[in-house]
Design a protein around this nucleic acid. Structure first.
Lengths: 173, 173
DNA sequence: GATTTCCTACTCGGATACGGTGTGTCCGAGTGAAACTGG
DNA sequence: CCAGTTTCACTCGGACACACCGTATCCGAGTAGGAAATC
């Protein structure tokens, strides 16, 4: 019942990509460097995000990853399911239908009560994750630590920093 | 992010023990037979329940397991945590404090927003499991399939069935 | 016949193997940009 | 100077090992009950 390490990395990566913006792809290696993570393994997680349609990947030089849609439309649940898979944590194997006193076919039409409880609990969990988007998290961070978004943007895009920031064109927006 | 198989078995076992009653211990082998499960492995799960104080174990002949307290005071969360452990699924490794642009010490005083969201989701999950007791589940089953509790009781305690039921003393209560 | 002792069978409990999944790494296919060449 | 071509470095993508935890099993410690021996 432990969540994959990759989920944490993936969410952080999404946050960074949200701040960098959709127009400048960021390589997996650079994302990994920012958090001191194994590059190849983070790349694996990013591939999962790409398969899920959360990020878009562009190969070749000047390639990398970028958010495939606005951060407001990416929920935490989307990211978690992209990495973990959508299979529920509790799987009912219907052991009540086995053994010397099995539940009758008619009884088995009703869902197993235990599975129902577990399903309700997971639904509550999913609901909570679904109600929070990457944009929400990004805003929360920005409100508490206003310097972070610009700092991240600058680090990931030094060229644009040199140009845009000195000309005061975009970053202050 | 998959829950242990043993959780399902443990909950079923608790249900059976609740129906059998606290006075007649049931062996792990017999509980396993009822659902066609590997006896030794179910025994392991029951040991975990015993360590958590959910069931009481008595060794020796005529020994076995029984609920240590009324089913109304055993929540689903108790059983899940007894098997799975109480460590949360998501563990924040604070990668934001690593890398070339680490979060400052002052920033780190605020909890990581990602961890907060995950924590809220797990709290909702736990709350849902905490609000449902073994007695609740047992009642739900009994209301939909009234014959089940007595059937289970009889199968696990044929001696008392021969005596008590024929004399009509306890089982109809 | 009652009591004490011993023994045996039975139960849980923890220590011990095995397999699957998460973790981590590597190299190849594809691509875009830059450099070079010829007009 | 400009257009076309070639080369090349760079990126993702999937295939390949390693390790840890869940799964499954076994045997030993402890106990209660009964049988046997004794008074």
């Amino acid at each position: 019942m432990r969540m994959n390490q990759g989920v944490e990395w993936a969410v952080h990566a999404c946050l960074h990509l949200a701040w960098v913006g959709p127009d400048t792809p960021v390589t997996a290696a650079r994302l990994a460097e920012f958090n001191d993570l194994p590059p190849a393994y983070l790349n694996k997680q990013l591939q999962a995000l790409a398969r899920a349609g959360i990020v878009s990947s562009t190969p070749g030089p000047r390639g990398g990853f970028a958010l495939a849609r606005p951060a407001e439309h990416i929920t935490m649940l989307d990211v978690v399911e992209a990495i973990e898979g959508a299979t529920p944590a509790f799987v009912c194997t219907e052991i009540r239908q086995r053994g010397p006193l099995p539940a009758s076919k008619r009884s088995a039409r009703n869902p197993c009560e235990i599975a129902s409880v577990m399903s309700r609990a997971e639904a509550a969990w999913r609901h909570e994750l679904e109600s929070e988007t990457i944009a929400d998290v990004a805003d929360d961070v920005a409100s508490k630590l206003p310097g972070v978004p610009q700092g991240v943007r600058r680090w990931f895009n030094p060229a644009s920093t040199a140009v845009r920031v000195r000309t005061g064109r975009a970053d202050t927006a």
